[in-house]
Amino acid sequence: MYFLIVLGVLFVLVAFLSAPLRRQRASPPTDSTEIANLDAARDAKYREIRDAELDHQTGKLSDEDYEAIDQTLRAEAIEILRALDHAHGRTPATIEQR
């Protein structure tokens, strides 16, 4: 009885672990690492822009400091977006066309 339980577990295990190997081999995924990194950087930059905005709204940043920081952050965000476009193979011209 116990032997059958263990055998059943073993069978399920082998089937479960080998399922990806039995599937038709998928084409290797495109190199999405750079895009993923840029996505992460973009999200972090967005959060930073919003944090700076909240700091300004709650009186922790002066108007001058906020403007300078906000502009720097947005410029950095645009650089990231530009890099994302490049990674996606898009150019400003194609964007304008759309």
């Binding site: 645009i78 400003p92 964007i95 304008e96």
Partner: peptide, 16 residues
């Protein structure tokens, strides 16, 4: 540029 990115379609996000 912010305007160009801001009006970009989904898949090409804009500055918030």
């Amino acid at each position: 540029q912010p305007v160009a990115y801001a009006t970009s379609p989904p898949g090409q996000p804009a500055v918030p």
